[in-house]
């Protein structure tokens, strides 16, 4: 008799914990279509990383620079709050010739108010690192996106560890956008590998390119149990509400394993480790 009550209470508590834990990050919406619309009729965005982390966003080749910057900005946008209204995008000045400058009108079609973004063009990697550190020390900066086309020597483990610690103590995220297939040891909490994916054609025009779609692999670290563990490949669309799992159509590019669903159909109860503690 007594045992039954205890077990019921235990089950109740377990359920409550599961609810708390699954709340943060990877949308419940994926497994439960009914939950996708949030309170304001908006879809809950997936992939909301907590603030104060050092990310590395890798793209295989420099010609994927558009996708890499887009993904990094997409990760940074949910971090904007009234108290932290700015994102800094830092590049090396001579590399903008090759990779292009973030373009104001393009940013506003991507969903940013360009007043939220500050561009920095630095002369050398040492200045870049200094600028990143200085920027995350400021309590009004939400995130710093720093891009290097060619990995500089200065960006070694020691420096990445320092950036990770500074980011954790200040609460501003750092997103290092890098290129190539070589991975050095770094203290980044999360490492993403990004490539562009064939977009879904807009309605009424099958031959036109659609919105931004990313093929994302989390190579290191994890966000939530089950779903976003290292090594799983999934497709994300960038929408006005943030990242959404890719929907229907000819979703995948050539290389992708079509047998796998776009996002692992894990049960939502399995979601969520201590994302709230991740920062």
């Amino acid at each position: 008799m007594h045992n039954v009550v205890r077990e019921q209470r235990l089950a109740d508590l377990r359920e409550r914990i599961a609810t708390i834990e699954r709340r943060p990050l990877l949308g419940e919406g994926m497994a439960l279509p009914g939950d996708r619309t949030g309170a304001g009729g908006q879809r809950n965005a997936v992939l909301k990383a907590p603030p104060g982390l050092l990310h590395e966003v890798f793209a295989d080749e420099q010609r994927n620079a558009g996708a890499a910057l887009g993904f990094a900005l997409g990760l940074a946008r949910p971090l904007l709050t009234p108290a932290r209204p700015a994102i800094l995008v830092l590049q090396l000045g001579h590399e903008t010739e090759e990779a292009g400058l973030p373009y104001g009108p393009g940013l506003s079609s991507f969903g940013f108010d360009p007043a939220q973004l500050i561009l920095g063009r630095l002369n050398n990697p040492a200045e870049l690192l200094w600028a990143v550190e200085e920027a995350i020390a400021c309590r009004a900066v939400a995130a710093v996106v720093a891009e290097v086309l060619v990995a500089p020597k200065a960006l070694d483990f020691t420096n990445s560890r320092r950036l990770a610690l500074r980011a954790a103590s200040s609460g501003a995220s750092v997103l290092l956008v890098r290129y190539g297939q070589v991975r050095e040891s770094s203290a980044a909490r999360l490492r993403w590998r990004i490539s562009p994916a064939a977009s879904q054609a807009p309605p009424f025009d099958a031959r036109a390119p659609g919105g931004a779609r990313f093929q994302v692999v989390l190579e290191k670290g994890r966000l939530g149990t089950g779903l976003l563990e290292a090594g799983i490949e999934f497709l994300l669309d960038w929408t006005a509400d943030g990242f959404q799992p890719a929907q229907g159509g000819e979703a995948a590019g050539g290389r992708r394993d079509r047998s796998r669903p776009a996002v692992h159909g894990a049960p939502s109860a399995a979601l969520g480790d201590g994302l709230s503690q991740a920062g």
Binding site: A65, G66, L69, G70, L73, T96, E97, A99, G100, L101, P102, Y103, P105, G106, L107, S108, S109, F110, P114
Partner: peptide
């Protein structure tokens, strides 16, 4: 005034 966000404009623009 910000330009029309519905026009397709790239995220990065080459300086030249």
């Amino acid at each position: 005034a910000a330009p029309n966000p519905n026009l397709p404009r790239p995220l990065r623009l080459l300086p030249r």
